[in-house]
């Protein structure tokens, strides 16, 4: 196969570089989507989370060739949505952001929790973000923010 075609934040795009390259690197370096953060490159931190075909994945764990035909949403695409606006407000309302490095991944993890379970329990939220490490807030504020978003955004998910 001689090109990798996929939908990125709503636009059809084509990639003709190395199919073995990491999606994370391509998103940051070729598409300049630097909201996708690089934390560990071994699937341990979740900072590089993106949504592929509706599922949360670590973009460092994905080789470009595997995404041919897929639909990818990064934080840059997601922040255009009404759901993002609700999460944005909820995170701000309880100061769930400190340094902010984990937040793009954390917000996409929150989106996937709410898309699966519009009114999640605290445990469901904690499992949903268990692959996203935050070294500042201690998680309680983030869990709280996601609960608030579920209430405030009632009907959006």
């Amino acid at each position: 196969m001689n090109s990798i075609d996929f939908v990125l934040n709503g636009k059809e795009v084509k990639f003709t570089g190395n199919p073995a390259a990491r999606l994370l690197d391509v998103l940051r370096d070729d598409f300049r989507l630097t909201g996708v953060k690089c934390g560990c490159k071994e699937g341990e931190c979740g900072a590089c989370s993106v949504i592929i075909d509706g599922l949360l994945v670590n973009s460092c764990m994905v080789a470009m060739g595997s995404i041919n035909g897929s639909t990818i949403t990064t934080i840059e695409g997601y922040c255009e949505t009404a759901r993002y606006a609700v999460l944005d407000k909820a995170f701000a309302s309880v100061s769930a952001v400190q340094c902010g490095y984990c937040i793009p991944g954390m917000v996409l993890a929150a989106e996937c929790v709410l898309a699966k379970t519009p009114h999640p329990t605290e445990d469901e939220i904690r499992v949903g973000i268990s692959g996203n490490l935050c070294r500042c807030t201690g998680y309680n504020a983030i869990v709280n923010a996601i609960s608030i978003a579920a209430k405030e955004g009632n009907g959006l998910w």
Partner: peptide
């Protein structure tokens, strides 16, 4: 052979030719 990729991509050898099995 590349199924999910989550073990392979830790090393992420860009010289490998993958047979993607996810489809």
């Amino acid at each position: 052979p590349y199924a999910g990729g989550t073990d392979l991509m830790i090393e992420a050898d860009e010289n490998l030719c993958y047979l993607f099995l996810n489809k």
